[in-house]
Simulated assay, not measured.
Amino acid sequence: MKTIAKFFFALLLVTIISIPSFAQSTVSLGVKGGANIATFRGEDVKDYDNRTAFNFGLLLNYSVAEKVGLSLEADYASMGAKYDGSILGIETGEYTTKLDYLRTSLLFNYYMGTSEMDVRPELFVGPYVGFLMGADNKYEDNDYNDVKDAYNATDFGAVFGAGLHLRVGEKMWLVPDVRYNLGLVDIFDNDNFEGRNGVLSVNLGLTFPLN
């Protein structure tokens, strides 16, 4: 996992250093937020249900060419899952697991149409790395209990999705999107239990020009 994280940050560093070499680049800064529909993925956690939560953060866009761009994103994302416990078919109540991550993503964007259009669809894909900020579990309406030691400190995966750029001013864009964060590594610190994150998000962002 440490090797993956080092590779990811090396990729971020190379991207940031390379940006000034693109004379035609348009750079914009933005804010974003949205709703997460999160769950766990894997055979050991197949009976878990979705947990609805949130994300919010910042984004930096580089429009390198007419149809190509890069985005650096950093957000705080609340994730996790729910589980309806049962013994011999008798319901014992609902357990909720809340996982909070600080995530960083590098997205490769493909813009459709031209920059003169007021509405531009886009597709994007890229890697993300998440750092666990907190993990809590509760039964029914009881208080949350800290279970951070039961989870790995980092998460890694892929992001893919689609969105729109809606012009609201000179180089200002309203950016709604739908995306899926596909976790690729085990999040549990348990040799006998395995699972990965899966998060469907509906987001809304607003970007402002920096040049």
Rank of each mutant, 00 (worst) to 15 (best):
N211I: 14
Y110L: 14
F193Y: 14
Y151I: 01
G130R: 06
G113D: 06
D191R: 05
F193R: 01
K148S: 14
T207P: 01
S201Q: 15
T154K: 13
L58F: 13
K148Q: 13
I16M: 14
K138A: 06
F7Q: 11
N181P: 04
L106A: 05
R120C: 10
A5F: 06
I16N: 00
D118N: 15
T114M: 01
S201N: 10
N192S: 11
M112K: 02
G195P: 09
N55A: 10
A150V: 01
N55Q: 12
D177N: 13
K138D: 00
L11C: 13
M1H: 11
M117R: 15
R51K: 14
G198I: 03
K82G: 08
Y62W: 11
E116H: 11
K2D: 14
D146Y: 07
Y151N: 02
M1R: 07
L12Q: 04
L107V: 02
V45Y: 00
S21M: 12
D84F: 03
V202D: 04
G130P: 10
G33N: 12
T92H: 02
S201L: 08
F54W: 12
P121A: 01
T104D: 03
D149G: 05
L182E: 00
V64A: 12
I17Y: 10
I17W: 06
L70D: 03
T207W: 05
F8N: 07
I90H: 06
G183S: 03
D141G: 05
A23S: 11
T39P: 00
L59R: 14
G169R: 01
N197H: 03
D191I: 10
V119Q: 01
D44Q: 08
G89E: 08
F56C: 06
K98L: 13
T154L: 12
L70T: 04
F7D: 07
S78G: 08
R167H: 05
L29A: 13
F193K: 02
Q24V: 07
D84Y: 09
R103L: 08
I37P: 01
V27A: 04
T207E: 13
A10G: 12
S21V: 06
F22E: 01
E170L: 07
Y76K: 11
N192W: 03
F9W: 15
K98S: 14
L123C: 08
E122L: 14
F8D: 02
L182I: 02
R120L: 07
A10E: 06
Y101D: 02
G93T: 04
A5N: 14
K2M: 07
F40N: 02
K67N: 15
W173T: 02
G163V: 03
I87H: 06
Y151C: 03
K6S: 13
A81C: 10
E140I: 09
Y180H: 11
T114I: 03
K32A: 00
G195F: 02
A81V: 03
L29I: 15
L200I: 10
F8Y: 14
N50C: 07
I19M: 15
E73G: 07
Y83A: 05
L58K: 09
